[in-house]
Amino acid sequence: MSVDNETVRRAAKLARIAVADEDVPGLAKELSSILDWVEQLSEVDVEGVEPMTSVTPMDLKRRTDEVTDGGIQDKILANAPDAREGFFAVPKVVE
């Protein structure tokens, strides 16, 4: 098994997903089965092959550096779970 419980906890922390202790072994098993399966990529000879960065190569277009929108505070806050006085409200960020 390529993924142990500690690795699951580390990935969950990186992904900011709370994982209950009792769910860790099950996830370790699932992630292992996925990662053991993708392991077959190690048999491909990729020496000297450039990693893909753009699937349909094209030059990015340039545009004038100017403000084209704005003034839509109401729209931006419209779906917020908690918005107050024109701001997104969140719990305490610093101790």
Binding site: A11, A15, I17, A18, V19, E30, L31
Partner: peptide, 19 residues
């Protein structure tokens, strides 16, 4: 929020991606 809001398959893929 992410544990309760994402379904199982999404969590699985996000964890694989983070890893």
């Amino acid at each position: 929020t992410r544990a309760e809001g994402f379904g199982k398959e999404v969590q699985r893929r996000v964890l694989v991606g983070a890893y």
